Amino acid sequence: GATAVSEWTEYKTADGKTYYYNNRTEESTWEKPQELK
């Protein structure tokens, strides 16, 4: 299949934890999204 550009962006909180934000759905998660595995 075609490689889609991930909708997920990786961010870090002030205390250094990583989370992921989906630009399309406006969803955020602590877990690494399936698309990034």
Rank of each mutant, 00 (worst) to 15 (best):
G1E: 12
G1K: 07
G1Q: 14
G1T: 14
G1F: 14
A2T: 12
A2I: 13
A2L: 14
A2K: 07
A2S: 14
A2P: 13
T3I: 13
T3E: 12
T3Q: 14
A4V: 13
A4L: 12
A4K: 07
A4F: 09
A4R: 05
A4Q: 14
A4T: 14
V5R: 08
S6M: 09
S6Q: 10
S6D: 11
S6E: 10
E7R: 03
E7H: 07
E7D: 12
E7L: 06
W8A: 00
W8Q: 01
W8T: 00
W8M: 00
W8Y: 02
W8D: 00
W8L: 01
T9L: 09
T9I: 13
T9E: 10
E10H: 03
E10K: 05
E10A: 09
E10G: 01
E10T: 09
Y11E: 05
Y11L: 15
Y11H: 12
Y11M: 15
Y11T: 05
Y11P: 00
K12W: 06
K12V: 13
K12G: 02
K12S: 06
K12R: 14
T13I: 02
T13C: 13
T13G: 10
T13N: 08
T13R: 03
T13Q: 04
T13A: 08
A14T: 12
A14E: 10
A14P: 12
D15Q: 05
D15Y: 06
D15S: 09
D15P: 00
D15M: 05
G16A: 01
G16K: 00
G16P: 00
G16M: 02
G16I: 00
G16Q: 02
G16L: 01
K17G: 05
K17F: 07
T18F: 10
T18R: 04
T18P: 05
Y19E: 03
Y19T: 02
Y19C: 15
Y19D: 01
Y19H: 04
Y20N: 00
Y20W: 15
Y20K: 00
Y21A: 01
Y21F: 10
Y21S: 02
Y21D: 00
N22A: 00
N22G: 00
N22W: 02
N23V: 12
N23G: 06
N23L: 10
N23D: 08
N23T: 15
R24N: 08
R24Y: 11
R24G: 05
R24W: 11
R24P: 02
R24D: 05
R24L: 14
T25D: 01
T25P: 01
T25Y: 02
E27V: 08
E27W: 02
S28G: 11
S28W: 15
S28V: 15
S28R: 15
S28L: 15
S28K: 15
S28F: 15
S28Y: 15
S28M: 15
S28P: 03
T29A: 07
T29E: 03
T29Q: 10
T29L: 08
T29K: 05
T29W: 05
T29M: 08
W30L: 07
W30A: 07
W30D: 07
E31Q: 09
K32Y: 06
K32Q: 08
K32W: 04
K32R: 11
K32D: 04
K32G: 03
P33R: 01
P33E: 03
P33N: 02
Q34F: 12
E35I: 06
E35H: 07
E35W: 06
E35K: 04
L36A: 05
L36Q: 05
L36V: 06
L36W: 10
L36N: 06
K37I: 15
K37Q: 15
K37S: 15
K37F: 14
K37A: 13
K37G: 14
K37D: 15
K37E: 14
K37W: 15
